[in-house]
């Protein structure tokens, strides 16, 4: 529908790129659609049933869950951020509203955030230069809000050598710079 519209990634590129610093890789992901899905008061049963039916996971605090097409992580009591492939779910709210009806408040969040996938050995050493998350100890699937270089960032641990970040889109370049500097100090 919006084929004629050219998009820019949060970093200002035509297409998402990967930055490599030594053994560390920072990949911008512009193919993740994101929405906040919040429980409306008193709608607990309808909300849970709708989520279960549509396959929207509702992980508990400090956790993320992945699935097809929907993944999710907990952000605040009674609210989750739900992810889906951008190609199929660009207007993610239009997909989710029929699912939840009046049981949820749903808001598009895709372009509010820049998404970075980080990979490389010893991610703990990298992340401890940026935030206070005890990455060595938390399990895979851990999700939390944390601070990196003054920026509020959601951090999702996806494996021993894989972390996904959602940072404020307008500060994508500043966040990337912080990631690069920290990686360079280890490389």
């Amino acid at each position: 529908m919006a084929d004629a519209w050219k998009s820019l990634t949060a970093l200002g590129h035509d297409t998402a790129r990967t930055v490599t610093v030594g053994p560390y890789r920072i990949t911008e992901r512009d193919d993740v659609a994101l929405a906040s899905v919040a429980l409306r008061r008193g709608q607990d049963q309808a909300f849970a049933a709708a989520a279960a039916k549509a396959g929207v996971p509702l992980p508990p605090p400090l956790q993320s869950a992945s699935g097809t097409p929907y993944g999710a992580f907990w952000v605040t009591p009674d609210m989750w951020f739900v992810t889906a492939p951008f190609a199929s779910h660009e207007d993610i709210v239009a997909h989710l509203k029929p699912v939840f009806g009046a049981a949820a408040s749903i808001t598009e969040q895709t372009d509010a955030w820049v998404c970075f996938d980080l990979s490389g050995p010893a991610l703990t050493a990298w992340m401890e230069r940026l935030c206070n998350v005890d990455l060595a100890v938390v399990p895979d699937g851990y999700a939390t809000r944390t601070m990196m270089d003054h920026l509020g960032v959601y951090l999702l641990k996806q494996g021993a050598d894989a972390v996904r970040l959602f940072g404020p889109r307008s500060s994508a370049q500043s966040l990337l710079h912080a990631l690069e500097v920290a990686a360079a100090s280890l490389a």
Binding site: P61, V75, T76, P77, R145, T146
Partner: peptide, 11 residues
């Protein structure tokens, strides 16, 4: 006293 978890879960 009241504290707000601004860089956290907003509680």
């Amino acid at each position: 006293e009241l504290w707000y978890h601004e860089q956290g879960d907003r509680s």
